[in-house]
């Protein structure tokens, strides 16, 4: 699962532009990731300019 830190996220859409399965949606104020569609490629984490996305661990 990808965790979104909404305090850091600028809702800029960079992650959306690289998502190969189109599982990230956004409004003007919030980002949302559909965990059912996500394939854990982590491209979104890689390109986030603000370090707002993290891989969520189980603990």
């Amino acid at each position: 699962m990808i965790h979104i830190d909404h305090d850091l996220c600028d809702v800029c859409g960079t992650c959306v532009g690289v998502c190969p399965v189109d599982c990230i949606s956004m409004s003007d104020t919030t980002l949302n990731i559909d965990d059912d569609l996500c394939i854990q490629c982590n491209f979104c984490i890689q390109v986030c300019p603000m370090e707002a996305l993290k891989e969520e661990t189980d603990d």
Partner: peptide, 20 residues
Amino acid sequence: VESRIARKAGIKTAVTPENM
């Protein structure tokens, strides 16, 4: 940059990280 609308018509718009 998000380019989600075209995807819904079947156009592949996602770029690879090297091109973002």
